[in-house]
């Protein structure tokens, strides 16, 4: 019995080491393009690291039991009459509760706080969703792009998206920012984000605005490209827009 615990423990250790080396070997996440996205990926990675020992524990108990305790032949034989084991059950309760509470506090509450702490805004972009297109308005610059085919943002500026919908629920999602929020008719929703790289949809597919809430026939194609420019380029673009609309 003690030997089973030791061998099972060894199996757990080996599986855990294998899993850790696997996740360090591969790139788990796609391109990030914002400070907030990095926070989210950090929480994600941390939770994976927490989950691995749990996963390998259950798997190693399963595997070890299947190979070590399997009944051979057809002869019927009963196992030991173990109804329960107080230390084991209380340890289990303690460890699982500890893990759960730790998860709530560490990537959960702290991550949420990190995402929502910074309320500064450099640029406001109003997003209006409709079946099945996006319109963007830059109220400070007085530019409106109806049914846009591109969303242009400046890098390293804190942007506040004010999202609304004219018909049904859509969801404003930029995968490289790792954030989405629904566009709900009749109310405004908000998203704050600071892009930190320059790029466009041609460079990476995660630089796109995608509708993430089922909204009917055109849902799968309700998508526009995202282009992040330097601040100078962005200002030039603004001037171009204002002069062309005049």
């Amino acid at each position: 019995m003690r030997r089973d615990v030791i061998y099972g423990g060894l199996l757990w250790l080996v599986l855990t080491v294998i899993c850790y080396s696997l996740i360090s070997e591969f790139t788990l996440f796609p391109l990030t393009a914002a400070h907030e996205a990095e926070t989210i990926d950090e929480s994600f990675l941390f939770l994976i690291q927490l989950a691995i020992p749990v996963f390998t524990f259950v798997v190693s108990v399963l595997l070890y039991s299947i190979f070590r305790f399997r009944r051979t032949g057809e002869k019927s034989e009963d196992g030991l009459h173990i109804i329960s084991n107080k230390p084991v059950t209380w340890m289990w309760l303690l460890i699982t509760s500890g893990l759960a509470i730790y998860m709530i506090i560490d990537p959960g509450l702290t991550g949420f706080k990190k995402l929502t702490a910074n309320k500064n805004v450099d640029l406001v972009v109003q997003v209006e969703a409709r079946k099945w297109s996006w319109s963007f308005t830059y109220p400070q610059q007085g530019i409106t792009l109806k049914d846009a085919d591109e969303l242009i943002l400046p890098v390293n500026q804190r942007i506040l998206f004010e999202i609304s919908s004219v018909d049904i629920i859509h969801s404003f999602w930029i995968p490289a920012f790792r954030m989405k929020i629904d566009a709900v008719p009749g109310q405004l929703t908000f998203m704050r984000v600071t892009p930190n790289i320059i790029g466009s949809f041609e460079d990476d597919i995660n630089l796109r605005v995608q509708c993430a809430e089922l909204c009917g026939t055109g849902h799968s194609r309700m998508r526009v490209d995202l282009r992040i420019l330097t601040l100078q380029e962005f200002e030039t673009w603004i001037i171009e827009q204002t002069t062309s609309t005049d």
């Binding site: 019995m1 108990v61 039991s65 305790f69 173990i82 289990w92 699982t96």
Partner: peptide, 22 residues
């Protein structure tokens, strides 16, 4: 996840040292 964990506890505790008839 804590009460859900009890189900795993019961399952794993049962197969451990059992006579598994596969």
């Amino acid at each position: 996840s804590i009460p859900t964990g009890f189900v795993f506890l019961a399952a794993l505790g049962t197969i451990w040292l059992g006579k598994l008839w596969l």
